[in-house]
Design a protein around this nucleic acid. Structure first.
Lengths: 336, 336
DNA sequence: TTCATCGGGACATATTTCGTCCCGCACTTT
DNA sequence: AAAGTGCGGGACGAAATATGTCCCGATGAA
């Protein structure tokens, strides 16, 4: 089924549309074209095209009093139920989450990244597709680090609209291992997508005075300017404690994080369950106010265990696109 | 899968097209667009559209030297194999039979009518769809009898292009039970499709002199004229011996049929394995020469046991459309 | 009888698909 | 080194298709 969706992406839409038409007729018994059109929020002409088609297929019959299902139509509707459950399940879930968090788009990949490495890759692929979709020429794309983003980078391919895109790390060093650092990922993405990249080399765990002096370096300042002008931000979402430990944050800070109820982490900021920022890593790059201004913020994260963290970041309220997997999405529902 | 095909009939075509593209690239390694287009017999522009799409999906990559599969492309190709086997199996079979017997169209429904009543109904549905496809306004449609044709009649629905169609029995009484007689079926079809019908009431088992006197009756003559002007003929195909017995043909004739190697029966004629007519039922209506002149001859028959009989009638060589099921089609292959 | 609603015909207009030609580039052959 | 071949991709008009809009006669309810 999802193989078919790879080769025919609008299969879902068409199937869904035709199913809902049949379904609606089934429940109403006999219904007129215009009434049905307004109910399903389809233009009259489009519905008519579909009805003509369904009649050709012998699935419904038209009389002067309206349209009704044929026997085969009723039978088909029954047979479709499992398919539709799977099909509508995900796309309905997408729609639910999209409206709930006021997002522009939600993409849900079947599976659980916690369980299957393959699902994780699929999330990466979907993330890359989303990025391709929203990117346009000469955009500045700021990317965060993490294993999920590394997967996204893997699946990028050269495309027309990403030609000339500039990839930059969203923020400076955060203590990740090299291959998962935002710098590496930005350069990988640029190479894969056929764009430019610029890196931001600053040490991890900056002290206050080091920070101040860094911000006076004209080279650093220039690249930071570029970063802050990003039209697109792509980032992963992590569990606060897991991230803190992986980045070898000192134990005192960990204590503080716990005390503040830090639950999720994204692009160097820590969020509590309500989506409030409770802590930020000391480094340079994108600031919170920049994120709020960014045109397209794409979050990519999957796995059942990350459900709550994703919910927290979504509540933060400045995301535009969420790419996740079925397990995380289902989990996510519990926190809205 | 075949549920999806009901709701999206060109799914097969698209999937097949895209699969063959990927498959071909896979075997060639790296190949250019124009070379590929000529090989696949696609116009360059169409192939290009598909390639653009497949690249968007991350299934193939393009370089200056040509196109090659990406890793996901290779993976997908592998995953598709079972689907394609099922998908291409049938449509390839359709194409093979179509060219082998020089037909205009072959429709194969999955299953075996001998085993499943449902498949038999599906064959009927497909037959009705085929009839709908070839019919145009004010056509004369001659139909034969039999259980399969009865199913076809069941699935007819009113449609624009069949408005005003005239349904007539192909030939007079052949000794069938009432509900399977051509007369009944013609009237059912007319009612279902919203057309007219005229019947031909002549007794079964005509003697020579009765035949001659009948053919002088002006009423009979007139309707026979209409029948012989039919643009479309729809008929089933039966096993010769089974049909002979069902129609209570006298034992002497049965002996003759066996001696002549009669294998198949269609519209009152008996055929041997080579498709030669070895016997005809004594009644009025469509003659062999009329069939040969008819614009669209549609044969509808399914079931593994009928494979050989279908082959015989196909070899007769005056059919245009064959609607059958998977079992019969596979069986059919053995006799070409 | 009136009136609302039905399916379906008709037609101008968006939108997409398709055919065709050309370009610059990389690579091979001469 | 020069010429030739095949590559992907850009461009653009023609053709096909999808869509919005309005109208018509039929049918059934009020």
């Amino acid at each position: 089924m999802d193989i078919q969706k790879r080769l025919l992406p609008d299969l879902t839409d068409v199937l869904k549309k035709r199913y809902t038409i049949l379904h609606h007729i089934s429940t109403t018994g006999v219904v007129g074209r215009r009434a049905l059109a307004t109910h399903l929020e389809l233009s009259e002409r489009v519905l008519r095209g579909e009805v003509d088609f369904l009649r050709e297929q012998g699935l419904l019959e038209t009389e002067s009093s309206g349209m009704k299902l044929s026997d085969s139509g009723r039978q088909l509707l029954e047979d479709m139920e499992p398919i539709v459950k799977e099909l509508l399940g995900l796309s309905d879930l997408e729609e639910t989450l999209r409206t709930r968090f006021s997002l522009r788009q939600v993409v849900i990949v079947p599976g659980d990244s916690d369980v299957s490495e393959l699902t994780k890759k699929e999330v990466g692929r979907a993330g890359a597709a989303a990025l391709r979709r929203y990117a346009s020429k000469n955009d500045v794309v700021a990317v965060a680090g993490g294993s999920t983003l590394a997967e996204v980078a893997n699946f990028l391919t050269p495309s027309v609209q990403m030609k000339g895109c500039m990839f930059v790390p969203a923020r400076g060093g955060l203590g990740e291992s090299v291959e998962l650092q935002a710098n590496s990922i930005a350069s990988t993405m640029a190479k894969k997508a056929g764009g430019q990249y610029r890196l931001l080399h600053v040490p991890d765990h900056l002290g206050e005075e080091a920070y101040v002096s860094l911000m006076q370096d004209p080279n650093i300042l220039e690249i930071v300017e570029v970063i802050r002008s990003a039209r697109i931000v792509v980032h992963g979402i992590g569990d606060a404690m897991v991230m803190a430990r992986r980045r070898k944050v000192d134990s005192q800070t960990i204590q503080e994080l716990m005390a503040e109820g830090a639950l999720a982490e994204a692009f160097g900021y820590y969020f509590d369950r309500e989506g409030n920022v409770v802590h930020k890593m000391q480094t340079v790059g994108l600031r919170l106010e920049d994120i709020q201004e960014t045109e397209v913020v794409i979050a990519v994260a999957g796995g059942k265990s990350k459900g709550e963290a994703i919910a927290a970041v979504m509540k933060f309220g400045h995301e535009d696109v969420l790419v996740t997997d079925e397990a995380a999405a289902t989990e996510l529902l519990k926190f809205i």
